[in-house]
């Protein structure tokens, strides 16, 4: 078995561990949802998948006031969070396996392991997991676990099945220490944006449920009551986004410096540059929206969703759809 093959197996192992984590986190959310005796009829596994909400259509939607959480929380006995603990442990395991996969991949290719779309997906997923675990060391963000591990598994499987290219050297244009800096920071920013996106998504769901949304008022969404208040989620999302935004700014600057050396211009509106610019503008708009009267809270969170959609498109769509200087996916049909 070569190192490159070992790397591939390690990615599968990581994806497996993360899937276990996903199930554990989902189970935890289900338990939290069913902790109140009056609501004990909830089907635990139904919580994480959207389609299973149909199973509980019969129950009448309950509007939730902002204070219902605290009251609901004080009613029942403390819920065992063993499942969440298992989730955190397996997420650590999966993250370490993924790190090992990335390192072996880099050794096999003889360079920094983030030079094509496949490797970018691996490293970006790693950063998302690392940020989630890092934050979870300091505060309880286990409610995000299902989302972060779910997205991670999705990215890893997608990378293995659709983006995979063999580990090898890179063309002269990529032979620069800027590959390590520019792409490394870009991939870190992408991973961090992922965690912020999950936070903002939970914020919006929770906010809608609190606001009396009929759909989100259903039983299957009761786990939302165990998440922090929308304002707390908003603050967390902002802090994560702020870090990622600074890194993204650096990505643009580092990219411009590299482009000046490699292509003879610091900015040339290449499709990747256009979309990196769009991402930057959308997140800049988000930061401004937060401090604009009438745009903070929910509306600002929508910017995070739009921004993350642009991040994903910049990472996948631009590589595949457009022909540009940044077409380094290494997939067939690309230079």
């Amino acid at each position: 078995m070569t190192l490159a093959d070992l790397s591939v197996d390690l990615v599968w192992a990581a994806a497996t561990a993360l899937t276990v984590g996903l199930v554990a986190f989902a189970f935890d959310l289900a338990r939290l949802a069913g902790r109140s005796p009056a609501r004990a009829t909830a089907v635990p596994a139904a919580v994480t998948s959207a389609e299973s909400t149909e199973a509980t259509t019969g129950s009448s939607p309950t509007p939730y006031g902002p204070d219902s959480t605290e009251r609901a929380g004080s009613e029942g006995a403390p819920v065992s969070r063993k499942a969440a603990g298992i989730g955190i442990s397996t997420t650590w395991l999966g993250t370490i396996l993924l790190l090992a996969a990335i390192v072996t991949r880099g050794v096999a290719a003889g360079r920094a392991p983030w030079a094509n779309m496949y490797e970018f997906a691996l490293v970006g997923t790693f950063f998302a997991l690392a940020v989630f675990l890092g934050v979870s060391l300091r505060r309880d963000v286990r409610y995000l676990g299902a989302f972060v591990t779910g997205l991670s598994v999705l990215f890893l499987v997608l990378a293995q099945n659709s983006f995979y290219v063999v580990a090898t050297g890179v063309q002269p244009a990529l032979q620069s220490y800027w590959l390590v800096i520019h792409v490394g920071v870009a991939v870190a920013a992408t991973g961090i944006f992922t965690v912020a996106f999950a936070t903002s998504a939970v914020q919006l769901l929770r906010d809608s449920r609190d606001g009396g949304s009929a759909f989100l008022g259903r039983r299957a969404w009761r786990w939302l009551d165990s998440t922090p208040r929308p304002a707390v989620l908003e603050a967390l999302s902002f802090r994560i986004n702020a870090v990622a935004f600074v890194l993204w700014t650096f990505t643009l600057i580092g990219g411009a410096i590299w482009a000046e050396d490699a292509w003879g211009r610091y900015w040339g509106w290449d499709p990747k540059e256009v979309w990196s610019f769009v991402v930057w503008i959308v997140y800049a708009a988000y930061l401004h929206a937060r401090t604009t009267r009438g745009w903070s809270g929910r509306r600002a969170a929508y910017f995070v969703l739009v921004g993350y959609a642009c991040v994903l498109f910049n990472f996948t769509g631009v590589n595949i759809l457009f022909d540009g200087l940044h077409s380094y996916s290494g997939l067939p049909g690309q230079e």
Binding site: W269, P271, V274, W275, F277, V278, I281, V282, A285, C310, V318, F322, G324
Partner: peptide, 10 residues
């Protein structure tokens, strides 16, 4: 500005 930048990539 973000929207206006998009056609240039398409």
């Amino acid at each position: 500005l973000a929207v206006a930048a998009v056609p240039g990539s398409v």
